[in-house]
Design a protein around this nucleic acid. Structure first.
Length: 159
DNA sequence: GCCAACGTTGGC
DNA sequence: GCCAACGTTGGC
């Protein structure tokens, strides 16, 4: 079991949107960066946990937790010419982009802000605090997950 | 809206 | 394979 951080712009799709979906589940599609794609395709497994991060908005930071309920499968939007995620070089026989399904677990009472995360001296590996890491899908070290979760909720994380 | 930091593209 | 130009990301 592993831990991840997924970024999304809440104006487009935020944690409240995930919570209101049928089964509180939604495909995490539209990832169009190869390094992030490789994580999704090869490393993200069913049962893994995800910090749902809100970017480019008023309250930037970790908004809550989700879990992986379906592992990598081809992202349909790459085949749809009208989609903003359309990729003319991708075919169903040779898909280039993948998605996973995520399910809502919990929303934090308040967003664990980027500012607060940066202020935690123990958090040194997380991509959002490191210079030049703008992946939309990134791994989270287990010990840093525990610290961040405790900081956000006041309780120890347990699956 | 600014702009730094990346990633991708394409000519050579 | 290099690298300049261009597009995108994302905090501020």
């Amino acid at each position: 079991m592993a831990f991840w951080l997924f970024k999304s712009e809440p104006d487009a799709f935020g944690i409240d949107d995930l919570a209101s979906r049928p089964n509180k589940t939604e495909p995490w599609d539209g990832v169009r960066n190869y390094q992030a794609r490789n994580f999704l395709r090869d490393k993200v497994k069913k049962g893994d946990f995800v910090f749902f991060y809100h970017s480019s908005c008023k309250d930037v930071g970790i908004a809550g937790v989700a879990t992986i309920v379906r592992e990598a499968y081809p992202d349909e939007s790459q085949f749809e010419p009208e989609s903003r995620y359309y990729d003319p070089k991708a075919t169903p026989e040779a898909p280039r982009w993948f998605c996973v399904d995520v399910q809502f677990v919990e929303k934090f009472d308040q967003v664990l802000s980027l500012q607060a995360i940066k202020a935690m001296s123990e958090i040194t590996q997380l991509g959002v605090v490191k210079k030049g890491q703008r992946l939309s899908v990134m791994p989270v070290e287990t010990d840093e997950w525990q610290l961040l979760y405790k900081s956000a909720t006041g309780i120890d994380f347990s699956s």
